[in-house]
Design a protein around this nucleic acid. Structure first.
Lengths: 108, 108
DNA sequence: GTAACATTTAACCATATGGTTGAATATGAA
DNA sequence: TTCATATTCAACCATATGGTTAAATGTTAC
């Protein structure tokens, strides 16, 4: 359970940075090499390499060697834990709409 | 759009701390005074006060004065933006199951 | 007004984070 | 082997974070 908590720490902390969120979005569409990603931001190669290490540690992305390149893609279970965490709160703001639906349907 | 990004930064960063997640859980059930929350953790009053400021800035909780106490509750739209952010990825891991469903149903 | 309670603010500390540059490593090409 | 390419690692820097204690600020009760 502590491990699950740690995992959530890492996932949410990963998501708190705009560059990392942007990387996730890109690699969710297709594989990118580290260099390809670097081109898209105005920070150094090393900075992106660090961001990728953070994402990897949180298991949000996976890296695969291909020759001298490293290909990055969204990890299979990426973001699922975060979503499951939010699940518990989802009904809190959806509940309101359900009640509204009920009220509207009462007219029938 | 930059503002939305900043908001996400703050929300996810808020969620990356276990104490703050725990506070959210508590105040989602009912209102708590700051002091009541402090009792539940082994850190100082000031530390909890800081955590609450972080949560307030991210608009995840709301504080209301009641005499000399400050009552804390989950903010109305709390966590909704985070959930909407994850929405875009949800189909990526749900899609797989939909496809599996289709395959299974093809036997009919 | 003074005391007691509830909370915040200030000053400080250690560690983490996000960035840099430059050297080191690994792979493929010549 | 040597060169070029792709990436990481190391050292460093500034700022942020999460914690502390102690003083300051409301707010109610006497």
């Amino acid at each position: 359970m502590v491990e699950y908590e740690l995992r959530l720490d890492m996932i949410f902390s990963s998501l708190s940075d705009p560059i990392r969120r942007d990387i996730l979005q890109r690699v969710s569409a297709r594989e990118f090499s580290v260099g390809e990603l670097v081109e898209r931001y105005e920070v150094s190669f090393a900075a992106i390499s660090k961001h990728l290490k953070v994402l990897e540690k949180a298991k949000l992305v996976h890296k695969r060697k291909e020759g001298k390149k490293q290909m990055v893609r969204l990890a299979p279970d990426a973001l699922r834990s975060a979503d499951e965490y939010l699940e518990q709160y989802r009904q809190m703001w959806q509940g309101r709409y359900d009640k509204l639906d009920m009220l509207l349907n009462e007219r029938d």
